[in-house]
Write a protein that binds this DNA or RNA. Structure first.
Lengths: 146, 146
DNA sequence: ATGATTATGATAATGAGTTGCAATTCCCTT
DNA sequence: AAGGGAATTGCAACTCATTATCATAATCAT
């Protein structure tokens, strides 16, 4: 059994929930998808694969993933929540291209350290953070100049 | 005339729009409000003051403020957009208390510089960014420990 | 002042996400 | 292995923030 599956099952048994084929299938497809998928995209992907799963179940299951610590929800400003695997994955932040919607991940330990410093100065305990840089990626810049 | 009013009027005339009493009034109330107000809050505030303005106009006007560079829209994860004056205001980021919803503003030049460095390394041109630190503020921490 | 054009308020529509419910599935107990 | 209480599902109805529609009203260049 995969680590991700184990985490989910541990959360499930801890909360008197049940393992269902739907949950197992959503997990499998989620792990096999691009790293910032929306509920709708996941729904369509599964429909295309012949599944008869309902959209509400996708939402419920993605929320379950978040509660179990497997995934996190992100808002990149296009009005739909995106879900990202965070379990057993190194923390990172995002560069988001306003033109082509490409999402580039990056990590920067110096920035993280400075955030902690800011928090301490403000007597604040950080649980999570969001750093998003919006702009134009190299690809699009070139295209625009042509 | 205030700087903010001038900016708005300049945007208005540049785009063949019109100065209306509603727009002037919304601007006045917006400038006089807490710095992270929602459309609904602004609407109720103006209703309480005896205005008969419609909610749609509030939304339209706040969007106009954003287009003119006077304000920016922010999403702090509670499902409602918040609007913040950014014209003639020093850039800053936010600490958000998950318990009492208090928002603390901070600025950190070192972090900004590191962001630029990350962008350059990824061949990316930054237009704007969002840095939000979520957690528990000092006040709430104390209360919780009692 | 007039007329073309834009703005407004009320209301309907949209779209992402949630919820209620009857039917189904899971899984603990025997 | 079967029974039964509890959780889950799909569907449809609902919420809630925001936007679009449209008839009427206000603005402003001439």
């Amino acid at each position: 059994m995969m680590k991700e599956e184990e985490l989910l099952k541990s959360h499930i048994s801890k909360h008197n929930l049940k393992v269902t084929k739907e949950r197992s299938l959503v997990l499998r497809v989620f792990l096999d998808s691009e790293p910032h998928i929306t509920a709708e995209e996941l729904y369509r992907k599964m429909k295309n694969d012949g599944s008869s799963i309902g959209l509400a179940t996708i939402y419920r299951t993605l929320n379950l993933f978040c509660e179990s610590g497997l995934a996190e929800q992100r808002q990149f400003g296009d009005g739909q929540a995106r879900y990202e695997l965070v379990y057993n994955v190194k923390h990172h932040d995002h560069l988001i291209c306003k033109q082509c919607s490409r999402i580039i991940e990056f990590e920067n330990q110096e920035i993280e350290a400075l955030q902690e410093k800011v928090a301490k100065k403000n007597n604040f305990k950080i649980f999570s953070h969001k750093l998003e840089l919006y702009g134009i990626c190299g690809n699009c810049s070139e295209k625009n100049d042509q």
